[in-house]
Protein backbone atom coordinates (compact mmCIF):
# COMPACT_ATOMS: atom_id res chain seq x y z
CA UNK A 1 0.00 0.00 0.00
CA UNK A 2 2.56 2.54 1.20
CA UNK A 3 6.30 2.38 0.62
CA UNK A 4 8.80 4.88 1.95
CA UNK A 5 12.44 4.60 0.88
CA UNK A 6 15.43 6.64 1.97
CA UNK A 7 13.36 9.45 3.46
CA UNK A 8 15.32 12.40 4.89
CA UNK A 9 13.76 15.57 6.27
CA UNK A 10 15.03 18.81 7.75
CA UNK A 11 13.81 21.69 9.86
CA UNK A 12 16.16 24.49 8.90
CA UNK A 13 19.65 23.10 9.50
CA UNK A 14 18.51 20.26 11.73
CA UNK A 15 17.94 16.88 10.11
CA UNK A 16 14.88 15.27 11.71
CA UNK A 17 14.53 12.12 9.56
CA UNK A 18 17.50 10.02 8.43
CA UNK A 19 17.19 7.44 5.68
CA UNK A 20 13.84 6.02 6.81
CA UNK A 21 12.53 2.92 5.03
CA UNK A 22 9.01 1.80 5.76
CA UNK A 23 6.44 -0.43 4.07
CA UNK A 24 2.81 -0.85 5.07
CA UNK A 25 0.75 -3.57 3.40
CA UNK A 26 -2.89 -3.16 2.49
CA UNK A 27 -5.20 -3.75 5.45
CA UNK A 28 -2.36 -3.49 7.96
CA UNK A 29 -2.23 -1.25 10.99
CA UNK A 30 1.33 -0.14 11.72
CA UNK A 31 2.36 2.17 14.54
CA UNK A 32 5.21 4.58 14.98
CA UNK A 33 6.39 4.92 18.56
CA UNK A 34 9.13 7.11 19.90
CA UNK A 35 9.96 9.99 22.19
CA UNK A 36 8.82 13.52 21.45
CA UNK A 37 11.00 14.94 18.71
CA UNK A 38 11.91 11.54 17.27
CA UNK A 39 10.42 12.56 13.92
CA UNK A 40 7.08 10.70 13.97
CA UNK A 41 4.89 13.68 13.09
CA UNK A 42 7.36 14.84 10.43
CA UNK A 43 7.22 11.38 8.84
CA UNK A 44 3.43 11.61 8.48
CA UNK A 45 3.67 15.19 7.17
CA UNK A 46 6.19 14.08 4.52
CA UNK A 47 3.86 11.30 3.38
CA UNK A 48 0.97 13.78 3.24
CA UNK A 49 3.03 16.30 1.25
CA UNK A 50 2.98 18.97 3.95
CA UNK A 51 6.71 19.05 4.74
CA UNK A 52 8.66 20.59 1.89
CA UNK A 53 12.17 19.97 3.11
CA UNK A 54 12.36 16.24 2.52
CA UNK A 55 14.02 13.89 0.04
CA UNK A 56 13.46 10.21 -0.70
CA UNK A 57 10.84 8.10 -2.46
CA UNK A 58 7.25 7.69 -1.34
CA UNK A 59 4.98 5.37 -3.29
CA UNK A 60 1.31 4.52 -2.91
CA UNK A 61 -0.10 1.32 -4.45
CA UNK A 62 2.55 1.20 -7.16
CA UNK A 63 2.31 4.94 -7.91
CA UNK A 64 6.04 5.69 -7.60
CA UNK A 65 5.50 9.40 -8.28
CA UNK A 66 3.13 9.74 -5.31
CA UNK A 67 5.79 11.59 -3.31
CA UNK A 68 6.07 14.33 -5.93
CA UNK A 69 2.37 15.21 -6.00
CA UNK A 70 0.85 18.21 -4.17
CA UNK A 71 -0.99 17.53 -0.89
CA UNK A 72 -4.53 17.80 -2.27
CA UNK A 73 -3.70 15.28 -5.07
CA UNK A 74 -2.32 12.85 -2.48
CA UNK A 75 -5.50 13.12 -0.43
CA UNK A 76 -7.57 12.49 -3.54
CA UNK A 77 -5.65 9.28 -4.19
CA UNK A 78 -7.26 7.93 -1.01
CA UNK A 79 -5.16 9.21 1.89
CA UNK A 80 -6.87 10.57 5.01
CA UNK A 81 -4.99 12.71 7.52
CA UNK A 82 -5.76 13.12 11.23
CA UNK A 83 -3.24 15.78 12.37
CA UNK A 84 -1.73 15.95 15.84
CA UNK A 85 -3.78 19.05 16.75
CA UNK A 86 -6.95 17.34 15.38
CA UNK A 87 -7.38 20.03 12.74
CA UNK A 88 -10.95 20.97 13.54
CA UNK A 89 -12.14 24.23 11.97
CA UNK A 90 -13.62 26.90 14.24
CA UNK A 91 -15.34 28.66 11.34
CA UNK A 92 -17.07 25.47 10.15
CA UNK A 93 -19.91 23.69 11.90
CA UNK A 94 -19.42 20.10 13.03
CA UNK A 95 -21.33 18.88 9.99
CA UNK A 96 -19.33 21.11 7.63
CA UNK A 97 -16.13 19.76 9.16
CA UNK A 98 -17.38 16.30 8.16
CA UNK A 99 -18.40 17.36 4.65
CA UNK A 100 -15.31 19.41 3.74
CA UNK A 101 -13.08 16.63 2.36
CA UNK A 102 -14.21 15.29 -1.02
CA UNK A 103 -15.01 11.58 -1.26
CA UNK A 104 -11.75 9.89 -2.25
CA UNK A 105 -12.42 6.15 -1.89
CA UNK A 106 -14.83 3.49 -3.11
CA UNK A 107 -16.52 2.87 0.24
CA UNK A 108 -17.05 6.16 2.14
CA UNK A 109 -19.03 6.24 5.36
CA UNK A 110 -22.39 7.94 4.87
CA UNK A 111 -23.38 10.80 7.16
CA UNK A 112 -26.07 8.63 8.87
CA UNK A 113 -23.46 5.94 9.53
CA UNK A 114 -21.09 8.53 11.01
CA UNK A 115 -23.88 9.85 13.24
CA UNK A 116 -24.91 6.35 14.28
CA UNK A 117 -21.34 5.58 15.33
CA UNK A 118 -20.78 8.98 16.98
CA UNK A 119 -24.21 10.11 18.31
CA UNK A 120 -22.65 13.14 19.99
CA UNK A 121 -21.67 14.53 16.59
CA UNK A 122 -25.30 14.38 15.45
CA UNK A 123 -26.46 16.19 18.58
CA UNK A 124 -23.90 18.93 18.02
CA UNK A 125 -23.82 19.01 14.23
CA UNK A 126 -24.75 22.70 14.12
CA UNK A 127 -22.15 23.73 16.73
CA UNK A 128 -18.90 25.34 15.63
CA UNK A 129 -16.26 22.60 15.33
CA UNK A 130 -14.14 23.93 18.17
CA UNK A 131 -17.08 24.12 20.58
CA UNK A 132 -16.72 20.36 20.99
CA UNK A 133 -14.65 18.93 23.83
CA UNK A 134 -11.16 17.64 23.06
CA UNK A 135 -12.33 14.04 22.90
CA UNK A 136 -15.26 14.92 20.67
CA UNK A 137 -12.93 16.84 18.34
CA UNK A 138 -10.74 13.75 18.15
CA UNK A 139 -13.80 11.69 17.18
CA UNK A 140 -14.71 14.31 14.59
CA UNK A 141 -11.23 14.27 13.05
CA UNK A 142 -11.40 10.49 12.70
CA UNK A 143 -15.02 10.54 11.45
CA UNK A 144 -14.04 13.13 8.84
CA UNK A 145 -11.51 10.85 7.11
CA UNK A 146 -13.85 7.85 7.36
CA UNK A 147 -16.56 9.85 5.60
CA UNK A 148 -14.15 10.66 2.78
CA UNK A 149 -13.64 6.94 2.22
CA UNK A 150 -9.85 7.17 2.47
CA UNK A 151 -8.07 3.81 2.09
CA UNK A 152 -4.92 4.83 3.93
CA UNK A 153 -5.26 6.75 7.19
CA UNK A 154 -2.38 8.72 8.67
CA UNK A 155 -3.36 9.22 12.32
CA UNK A 156 -1.20 11.37 14.59
CA UNK A 157 -1.96 10.22 18.17
CA UNK A 158 -5.74 9.90 17.88
CA UNK A 159 -6.00 8.67 21.47
CA UNK A 160 -4.01 11.47 23.09
CA UNK A 161 -5.81 12.91 26.10
CA UNK A 162 -8.87 10.68 25.74
CA UNK A 163 -10.63 8.85 28.56
CA UNK A 164 -10.16 5.05 28.63
CA UNK A 165 -13.73 4.61 27.43
CA UNK A 166 -13.12 6.76 24.34
CA UNK A 167 -9.77 5.08 23.70
CA UNK A 168 -11.59 1.75 23.71
CA UNK A 169 -14.15 3.14 21.23
CA UNK A 170 -11.40 4.32 18.89
CA UNK A 171 -9.85 0.87 19.16
CA UNK A 172 -13.14 -0.74 18.10
CA UNK A 173 -13.43 1.59 15.13
CA UNK A 174 -9.86 0.88 14.03
CA UNK A 175 -10.49 -2.87 14.20
CA UNK A 176 -13.73 -2.40 12.26
CA UNK A 177 -12.13 -0.42 9.41
CA UNK A 178 -9.17 -2.80 9.35
CA UNK A 179 -11.65 -5.62 8.75
CA UNK A 180 -12.98 -3.54 5.84
CA UNK A 181 -9.47 -3.43 4.34
CA UNK A 182 -8.45 0.09 5.36
CA UNK A 183 -4.73 0.61 6.03
CA UNK A 184 -3.56 2.74 8.97
CA UNK A 185 -0.23 4.31 9.84
CA UNK A 186 -0.65 5.32 13.45
CA UNK A 187 1.45 7.39 15.84
CA UNK A 188 0.75 6.00 19.30
CA UNK A 189 2.33 6.40 22.71
CA UNK A 190 -0.09 4.10 24.52
CA UNK A 191 1.74 0.79 24.02
CA UNK A 192 -0.98 -1.35 25.53
CA UNK A 193 -3.54 0.19 23.18
CA UNK A 194 -1.13 -0.16 20.25
CA UNK A 195 -0.81 -3.92 20.76
CA UNK A 196 -4.59 -4.35 20.77
CA UNK A 197 -5.12 -2.71 17.37
CA UNK A 198 -1.89 -2.89 15.36
CA UNK A 199 0.03 -5.61 13.54
CA UNK A 200 3.52 -4.18 13.73
CA UNK A 201 5.37 -1.37 15.46
CA UNK A 202 8.35 0.76 14.50
CA UNK A 203 10.45 2.45 17.13
CA UNK A 204 11.82 5.82 16.01
CA UNK A 205 14.81 7.50 17.67
CA UNK A 206 16.57 10.61 16.44
CA UNK A 207 15.02 10.37 13.02
CA UNK A 208 15.79 6.70 12.37
CA UNK A 209 13.75 3.53 12.65
CA UNK A 210 15.88 1.71 15.24
CA UNK A 211 13.70 -1.34 15.81
CA UNK A 212 10.69 -3.07 14.29
CA UNK A 213 8.63 -5.16 16.67
CA UNK A 214 5.61 -7.41 16.56
CA UNK A 215 2.90 -7.44 19.25
CA UNK A 216 4.57 -10.28 21.20
CA UNK A 217 7.87 -8.41 21.38
CA UNK A 218 6.20 -5.20 22.54
CA UNK A 219 4.29 -7.04 25.30
CA UNK A 220 7.41 -8.88 26.44
CA UNK A 221 9.44 -5.66 26.61
CA UNK A 222 6.69 -3.30 27.70
CA UNK A 223 8.43 -2.08 30.87
CA UNK A 224 11.72 -1.49 29.11
CA UNK A 225 10.01 0.37 26.23
CA UNK A 226 7.88 2.49 28.55
CA UNK A 227 10.96 3.46 30.51
CA UNK A 228 12.72 4.37 27.28
CA UNK A 229 9.78 6.46 26.04
CA UNK A 230 9.63 8.19 29.41
CA UNK A 231 5.94 7.58 29.94
Amino acid sequence: MLTVEGLNAWYGEAQVLRDVDLAVAEGEIVTLVGRNGAGKTTLLRCVMGLHERCTGRIGLRGDTAFGTRPAHRRARLGVGYVPDDRGIYATLSVEENLLLPPVVGPDPWSLPRVYETFPVLRERRRFAGTQLSGGEQQMLALARVLRSGARLLLCDEPTEGLSPLLVEQIGEILREIKAAGVTVLLIEQNLHFATTVADRHHLLAEGRIVESLDNGAVRAREHELLAYLGI
Binding site: L50, H72, P83, G87, Y89
Partner: peptide, 13 residues
Protein backbone atom coordinates in the same frame (compact mmCIF):
# COMPACT_ATOMS: atom_id res chain seq x y z
CA UNK B 1 -8.90 31.06 5.22
CA UNK B 2 -8.62 29.37 8.61
CA UNK B 3 -6.17 26.53 7.81
CA UNK B 4 -4.86 26.65 4.21
CA UNK B 5 -2.36 23.81 4.63
CA UNK B 6 -4.74 21.42 6.39
CA UNK B 7 -7.45 22.16 3.83
CA UNK B 8 -5.12 21.01 1.06
CA UNK B 9 -4.25 17.89 3.04
CA UNK B 10 -7.96 17.07 3.21
CA UNK B 11 -8.12 16.96 -0.59
CA UNK B 12 -9.38 20.46 -1.42
CA UNK B 13 -7.59 22.19 -4.29
Amino acid sequence: TERPELTRALGVN
